[in-house]
Design a protein around this nucleic acid. Structure first.
Lengths: 204, 204
DNA sequence: CGCGAATCTGAAAGGCGGTTCACCTTGCGC
DNA sequence: GCGCAAGGTGAACCGCCTTTCAGATTCGCG
């Protein structure tokens, strides 16, 4: 759960406490996911968790603090999920394809996580930036390594990383969140084909 | 200014009124851009505009209504700006390059507009979707036409459109809003080169 | 058992800011 | 000039929700 920044040592000491904390976090994910940060109410969180209002403040300093904790969790969960799916791929493009398909499927399963991260842009800018900067840095490293191995053409790693992230996020939104007229696997195949081959007509 | 949906006929009748309305809209763009929808206060808007609190409600039904009006305005302004820059390009890839450079430059000039559109996701979902759906539809048509002319390789127009929009938005965020270590023109050149050539090594 | 620490409780404090409204001012059309 | 619609004013209302807090309850340990 990442502990993190300055919560005046509110971590639980007993098993009971840990259980309550977990329920609060899950309830918060639901509440924020359904209603958004500002519409969400602490009473909504505590009701979902089945505890009294005051209990919330046994574990969190403020509404914003849970939200930040949630963003970190989801950021980690997303990266872990994608990395897991791509692990053991024979080459970079295959890894990309698998990662993207997994990402879109992930968005479908847990739309609330997607929504929370995007809202962080306005509630916890620093966490939002950290999320994408971390993602981009990993991406950049992968591209640089693939380039060194001669798997992909020469080019600017960092910019490419941001471009590919943009593709993933928007395809995730369009084909994961908004409509499901294509399967994650198809979306990934088509997208990676575009990234790999480009728009220009290949010489025969 | 797009009139738009159901504001109980609050449009100004005189020149004085039109002037005040314009100042309110500009003030709102500033206030929302700097503080975000929820932090923004009507008093902040009216103070910036130099009018009394009540005057706001002479022209708008609610806080949300100005916000929606603003999103529509900015959506139109962005599309117009990009289309203008791309007009008269000899081929699609050149048009893309010019449009992207213009978009990134636009974001740099008016970061508040960018921020407002993204926040619409949580304040006025329908406007947000409409913005990107409209953008995507135009893009798709352009790609289909270019494909028909034999300028680009065969492929799925709509998905490509979403992918290219994702690239633009994320490069705009990274190189327009967050840091300026590359010029808009360089970003556009590199990005369109990626979109055109792809990652795979070209046969000699 | 019995005691202290950890948890839990929920009423109420305290702020905040959107919206209303009754009244005043301005300026166009005759 | 003058009358009336359009425009402008800001104090007050109002509902909502985060956070606090004093006290009750539970639990683990000796």
């Amino acid at each position: 759960m990442a502990e993190g920044s300055g919560n005046g040592d509110k971590s639980p000491r007993t098993e009971r406490g840990r259980k309550t904390l977990r329920r609060l976090i899950e309830a918060a994910a639901q509440e924020f996911g359904e209603r958004g940060f500002h519409e969400a109410a602490i009473t909504g969180i505590t009701q979902r968790a089945g505890v009294a209002l005051g209990t919330f403040y046994t574990y969190f300093e403020s509404k914003e603090e849970v939200f930040r904790a949630l963003v970190r969790d989801m950021s980690n969960a997303t990266r872990a999920h994608v990395a897991e799916a791509a692990r053991g791929a024979p080459d970079r493009l295959t890894a990309e394809r698998r990662g993207l398909a997994a990402f879109i499927a992930f968005v479908r399963e847990r739309p609330e996580l997607y929504r929370i991260i995007e809202e962080a842009q306005f509630v916890a800018q620093d966490e939002y930036r950290k999320h994408y900067l971390t993602f981009a840095e990993g991406y950049r490293r992968n591209l640089a390594a693939a380039r060194a191995r001669g798997e992909i053409a020469d080019g600017p790693d960092e910019l490419r990383a941001w471009a590919l992230i943009g593709i993933s996020v928007f395809l995730g939104m369009r084909y994961g969140l908004w409509e499901r007229d294509l399967e994650p696997q198809e979306v990934a195949d088509l997208a990676i084909d575009l990234a790999s081959e480009g728009l220009r007509i290949r010489a025969p």
